[in-house]
Nucleic acid binder design. Structure first.
Length: 682
DNA sequence: GCAAGGTC
């Protein structure tokens, strides 16, 4: 018996369909699916990694284990998917040959090895080979299966090295900062190769914003009939110069057009969606990255869009682009589809990244709006429209740069008119900003209506939105297409960040400060780059897995010496941050800080730091993580709004605790009144 | 209750 092993259920299904000509039969063994192509050949779909790495159980009690001891602790493997493991054990004895057909990438190689190890434990003599394909089409799959290669053990071991280094560094540092700051249970803190540099990006940006000193500047505008021109100097940094200029302009009645430059501008279609571009677009229409991925996953599993986790921005030859467009000849996109189908040739745009694992995200079947939930439709429509846009013509603009002299002072104005909508007609998510100017010619004298001075100031950089952060992470090599959104979710659930755009909490400042000082490697994107290099060397067979892990442990041991001798300073830094996050506002009675506190019985409340002299207090909900958002209440300017996060539920915006308390008192009073009234009536 | 990486 021969078994083909793929990385996921859907791939198993599709490969079995291709190899059997649609005659494969699905069977369930031990609660997992497999697809029989014939009596001698079946396809098994895994569910990503089926084996994970961890520490032995004696290390699981945080408070009884020295964090540093995790650095050199033994690593054990743990089952991640019992059903699939049972299936593999079950079929192993009768397997003569196993073909690993997991995804064509580093993790895919390791996932294949995990399955193979389980089979080999039961059946040492099984024959093994590897199929490498970059698209699940008849042609590609048949080619891959008639050109089988060997499993690349070095490549798999390089991925295993990453697993172990991530575990050892992440877990040991996570425990260390949690233990020293006494942040235990559901309030634990965390650190890791990807999350810590990501958080550091946000903290750095917030620091820039905080320390930003705005510089005032001025602009001089000239109003003419139907448009406004700006002084060619753009920004005047000295008010004296503004005065001088105004003096010169005094009494001016007209401006003279001195130059007109007209240009055609080609505005190229956007590139096909890879995960990052998709999340950026989804983010710009109001979806969080995690939510957009969740919806994309649903659409994928139901067969409406292609696989949503991909780095690829180039459609492979094998995709029948015209056939996909033709799916939309019916339904709400029929006008767009017809327009594209009328073209002789569909020439898709392409991005810089071309990979072999999956195609860019595109629609694979037609679904009616009424068959999807509202949010699902929005995401589906985005994918469809983006797909259309990548096949459409460029948009064409006519731009015009006009120079105008007013008493020898140079002014300028730019116009832009769209002449051909091209792809923009298919993809309405980006605003088309036309700047329409009246008909002008060189030498024209224009009636000057007014000179206006605008006082402005430079602005700090803006906070990261989720889409922009994901893009930045990709540029820095942090995380993968499948994990970046999860990393962001993780930062929220640790209460390291709040809001969107994301703002780091004081606790995050404390953690990043401490790590940057004593374990700076973990906050630096460079660690990922070094790890990638080491993995390449392992994959090339130039160095062993053990050697790299050994070196890594050596570095981490040194870091721990530093951490331990500075334990108190680190604890103070983090705890101060945590305390700052607990400050809700100013006490209305005495003006001291209001802080989230815990009563002796364990319930939480807002209390005055002037206690016992001041006993001002406000109630708080019994459950959920309380987050001080830093957003100020409009009614009570000294009070910050609160958000409550209960696991598995949507965050609850409690808002201002004082407003909340007053509303509660009001409703209580009303209730009482009604009860009294009823009693009176009886 | 730890990481990051797969997948659902």
């Amino acid at each position: 018996m021969r078994y083909i092993i793929t990385e996921k259920h859907n791939t198993a299904k599709r490969i079995s369909e291709i190899l059997s000509g649609g005659k494969a039969k699905q069977k369930r063994i031990k609660g997992a699916n497999l697809f029989y192509i014939n009596e001698d050949l079946a396809v098994i779909g895994l569910s990503g990694h089926i084996i994970g790495v961890d520490f032995p159980p004696q290390y699981s009690r945080w408070e009884e284990v020295d964090a540093a001891s995790l650095v050199n602790a033994e690593i054990v493997t743990t089952p991640l998917n019992d059903k699939i493991i049972s299936l593999l054990k079950e079929i192993a004895p009768e397997a003569d040959e196993v073909t690993i057909a997991t995804d064509f990438d580093r993790e895919g190689e390791l996932i294949g090895l995990e399955a193979l190890k389980i089979i080999k434990e039961q059946n040492e003599s099984v024959r093994v080979n590897r199929a490498r394909y970059s698209a699940i089409t008849k042609q590609e799959i048949e080619k891959a299966f008639s050109n089988l290669v060997e499993l690349d053990y070095n490549l798999a071991h390089s991925a295993e090295t990453r697993q172990i280094i991530d575990l050892v560094w992440g877990a040991s540092l996570t425990r260390f900062i949690s233990l020293v700051s006494r942040s235990l249970g559901s309030n634990f803190l965390s650190a890791g190769r990807v999350q810590s540099p990501t958080l550091a990006l946000l903290v750095d940006r917030e620091r820039e914003i905080e320390s930003f000193v705005p510089t005032p500047y001025w602009e001089i505008h000239a109003k003419f009939d139907g448009f406004e021109a700006k002084h060619a100097k753009n920004r005047f940094l000295e008010h004296d110069e503004v005065e001088k200029c105004l003096k010169k302009l005094e009494g001016a009645k007209e401006g003279r057009v001195t130059d007109i430059k007209k240009k055609k501008k080609v505005d190229r279609p956007p590139i096909p969606f890879n995960t990052t571009e998709f999340l950026r677009a989804a983010s710009s229409i109001g979806f969080s990255a995690a939510n957009a991925m969740r919806i994309a996953e649903t659409l994928y599993v139901n067969g409406f869009i292609s696989y949503p986790r991909t780095d690829n921005t180039v459609y492979p030859e094998s995709i029948d682009l015209r056939g996909i467009v033709a799916l939309f000849k019916k339904g709400v996109f029929k006008e767009e589809a017809k327009k594209l189908l009328a073209k002789n040739e569909l020439k898709p745009s392409r991005g810089k990244k071309e990979t072999t694992d999956h195609p860019p995200i595109y629609p694979v079947s037609y679904v009616a709006k009424s068959d999807l939930k509202e949010d699902e439709w929005k995401i589906y429509e985005l994918v469809v429209r983006r797909f259309f846009a990548t096949l459409a013509e460029p948009a064409q603009w006519l731009t015009m740069g006009v120079k105008i002299d007013i008493k020898d002072e140079p002014f300028k104005v730019n116009g832009a008119i769209i002449e051909e909508y091209g792809w923009r007609a298919f993809y309405p998510y980006l605003k088309i900003e036309e700047r329409i100017l009246p008909q002008l010619s060189v030498g024209d004298l224009l009636n000057l209506i007014e000179i206006a001075v605008l006082e402005k100031e430079t602005k700090p950089p803006s906070r990261y939105g989720q889409g922009r952060l994901i893009k930045k992470m990709e540029e820095l090599g942090l995380g993968t297409k499948s994990t970046r959104h999860e990393t962001i979710s993780k930062l929220y659930s640790r209460a390291y960040i709040v809001g969107n755009p994301m703002k780091p909490t004081r606790k995050a400042y404390g953690v990043i400060d401490a790590l940057e000082k004593y374990a700076s490697m973990i906050t630096d994107p460079e660690m990922t780059r070094m790890l990638e290099e080491a993995m390449d060397r392992i994959a090339d067979g130039n160095v062993s897995e053990e050697e790299i892990i050994g070196e890594s442990r050596k570095i981490l041991n040194q870091i721990f010496e530093d951490l331990k001798s500075n334990e108190e300073a680190i604890a103070t830094t983090i705890k101060e941050g945590m305390r700052a996050d607990m400050v809700v506002g100013e006490c209305p009675d005495c003006g001291k800080e209001l802080i989230i506190r815990r009563s002796r019985r364990g319930s939480r409340f807002v209390g005055c730091s002037g206690y016992p002299d001041c006993t001002y207090s406000l109630p708080l909900p019994k459950t959920g993580k309380i987050i001080v958002t830093g957003e100020v209440c409009k009614e009570h300017g000294n009070m910050s709004k609160l958000r409550i996060i209960n696991k598995g539920k949507r965050p609850w915006d409690l808002g201002c605790p004082l407003c909340n308390f007053m509303a509660w008192q009001d409703s209580k009073k009303k209730e009482n009144d009604e009860t009294n009234h009823d009693e009176g009536g009886n």
